[in-house]
């Protein structure tokens, strides 16, 4: 453990970055998933086509490729836009934090699209009809009937999506985000103890995964509490 002296704080801040990316990407992922699911379930042919194109592309290409395309692609686009206003500018890029969060949210969002779509379809149509018969508006039906019912169905796969998100965070080190893998690479260079460093990174990610798994289990219990047999 002596080799880690002096590196603890770096790994701590690296873990903080992981958590930050996770939450930013989580919000975006839910957003992309809901938009994608809404498009797939809509009657609009164009929206359906775009949404299925989205899921096919992002579920069928490697995460690291999406990440690099997004990061370097956005840098080129941003630079050329900036040069219109100021020809002096040589290079501009989106910070790896935002480019990375956006990219992994897009990837996992494509999986979430299918999850949400399936969950909305899994809601008993009788419940929606009952809500209509009771005079609830479309919006109220959505918020009070459909969302709570679909949420129960979506939770278990949604937990897996959160695990994918936290694990994909490690990939963002490739474009220079200073999270734990990035720190370990630096520490490896100066200490010559790569195994110790990367095992520590593994342990950090494993504890994050454990926290997510346990919280999803609690949420599932909460979501299904009305289905428990009373004692």
């Amino acid at each position: 453990m002596d080799v880690l002296t002096g590196w603890w704080d770096d790994f701590f801040w690296g873990s903080v970055v992981v958590v930050q990316v996770f939450f930013v990407a989580l919000i975006l992922m839910v957003l992309f998933g809901l938009i994608g699911a809404a498009a797939k379930l809509s009657d609009n042919k164009v929206a359906q086509k775009i949404a299925s194109g989205y899921t096919i592309v992002f579920r069928g290409t490697p995460e690291i490729l999406v990440l690099l395309l997004f990061y370097f692609g956005s840098a080129i686009a941003l630079t050329s836009i900036a040069q219109i206003f100021d020809p002096e500018i040589k290079y501009l890029d989106i910070p790896p934090f935002w480019a990375g969060s956006f990219a992994i949210a897009l990837i996992v969002g494509s999986y979430a699209t299918e999850t949400f779509r399936g969950a909305f379809l899994g809601v008993d149509p009788g419940q929606v009809e009952a809500a209509r018969a009771l005079g609830l508006s479309n919006f109220k039906t959505f918020i009070y009937i459909q969302v709570p019912a679909m949420w129960r169905l979506a939770l278990p796969p949604f937990g897996n999506h959160m695990l994918s998100l936290i694990k994909d965070t490690a990939l963002i080190s490739v474009i220079g985000l200073e999270e734990t893998v990035f720190i370990a690479e630096q520490a490896m260079g100066t200490t010559g103890k790569p195994f110790t460093m990367f095992i520590l990174v593994g342990a950090i990610y494993l504890s994050f995964s454990t926290i997510i798994t346990l919280s999803v289990m609690r949420m599932e219990k909460y979501a299904n509490k009305h289905l428990e047999v009373s004692r």
């Binding site: 490690a170 990939l171 080190s173 690479e185 195994f195 990367f198 095992i199």
Partner: peptide, 22 residues
């Protein structure tokens, strides 16, 4: 549990960079 709970990139680095430590 361990292999599903950690990123594959970290696993690759542990094997490629890490094992040479011993």
């Amino acid at each position: 549990y361990v292999f599903r709970g950690t990123p594959i990139l970290v696993q690759i680095f542990i094997i490629y960079h890490g094992l040479a430590q011993f």
